[in-house]
Design a protein around this nucleic acid. Structure first.
Lengths: 230, 230
DNA sequence: CGGCATCCATTTTGATACTG
DNA sequence: CAGTATCAAAATGGATGCCG
């Protein structure tokens, strides 16, 4: 019984990290932020984790009450994992980490970096600007490669989910690599649309709202000050 | 050369965790959020890290540009570590983790939990309510055991630092255990003051503002749903 | 498919001893 | 005090294999 390791500090941050601070754990949460996922899909998204460690992490999260097992609605009717309320409430923390990463760490993809559209959807969500969204209530559909995500803006909040969930005001279609470039800020949405790499269908005025609501306020700087370097 | 381990994902969250996701790293950042610290003070606050690992983490953070070495102003004039701009910008993420922990994970101190007043100051800061703070510009002093912290509210933002930094509107004095209980929500400030465990000096009307600005919106629930437990 | 159990090569970590 | 050096104990990562 490898009695769980703890920082042993009476500190809110440390206690949180006692629960979600181990390797892979926050990425499992990230995967589940957009809805229930099956074991094999989690394993596929988390290249390198191995089924054993993934199983251990899920069991841990279940025991601490952040994740629960569920059964997908028919016709699927298969088992899956989803976040509990406590788990879902980690979203602000994950989004804060994502905002930092967008500004300071993301840059251009490294050779061999994996990519899944869902990550870009969460990046968009991280850029959500509540002030610009006030009074707006509409949904956006992202069709990237084979996957569909919906994002709904309502009451000054966003929620994004894997799969079709609402009647979209706007539908954005593209391949993964273009979507990746747009969500990371390398490529402007307008630019991508003009060059035909992205197709936008639906209410034209919603495009302008969309761009304001998910505006990139930070032009992405890089620190990477190699200390020892010359 | 143990070529740094990476998740290998083109995802803002994963890239952030590539940099700050290792054990102890975010706690080092947490310690530095309230100002520069010396090596030995970091080691003392982070019981269990060991000087070797602390050194390695600091070197890593220096290389990635989140931390830099500095010299404390005279008369101290000794070396210390402080956050760079990139490092300081992790504050929202650390605060988000702290808010989650305050609600879901903190509870009562476990036997053997370490505690430092600075952690409670950060917990208060995590509860900061910008809406209530609009138009307010004042500073609070916390004298806990031997340590002094100042928190300044201005322009809808807070900043807290280790040591005296501003002219305080209010001075709160108590021992560590009382301060811990108040910051964690176990004990109401009013209550602690009435029973004499905390002394409040300064502008009386500032006490009411203080309580609103750092109000605990979440009454602290606990998940801990043991899955396997009979 | 949906996992858990096992084995093993590497990394990370934790604790202490040691040096400038 | 500020770290390095060292070594034992854990955690991770792959690869299988197994079973319902």
């Amino acid at each position: 019984m490898p009695q769980k390791r703890s920082y042993g500090q009476y500190c809110a941050t440390a206690k949180t990290l006692d629960i979600v601070g181990e390797r892979w754990t926050l990425l499992v949460i990230r995967e589940l932020l957009t809805g229930p996922r099956r074991f094999k899909d989690l394993a596929a998204s988390l290249r390198g984790i191995g089924t054993g460690l993934l199983g251990a992490r899920l069991r841990q999260l279940e025991e601490t009450g952040l994740v629960r097992r569920t059964t997908l609605p028919p016709p699927a009717s298969v088992g899956a994992y989803e976040l509990t309320e406590a788990g879902r409430e980690l979203e602000p923390a994950v989004m804060a980490l994502a905002r930092w990463g967008l500004k300071w760490a993301l840059g251009k993809p490294a050779r061999g970096d994996a990519f899944h559209p869902g990550w870009a959807v969460l990046a968009l969500q991280a850029l959500f600007n509540p002030a610009e969204a006030s009074g707006i209530r509409e949904s956006y559909e992202f069709r990237v490669d084979d996957e569909v995500f919906h994002a709904r803006v309502d009451g000054g909040q966003v929620q994004s989910v894997h799969g079709a969930a609402w009647e979209p005001t706007l539908t954005v279609t593209s391949n993964g690599s273009t979507f990746r470039a747009v969500a990371s800020g390398e490529l402007a949405l307008e630019e991508a649309a003009r060059s035909g790499r992205i197709t936008i269908a639906g209410d034209r005025s919603a495009v302008r709202r969309f761009e304001k609501i998910f505006a990139r306020p930070t032009p992405a700087k890089l620190p990477a000050v190699r200390a020892g370097a010359a």
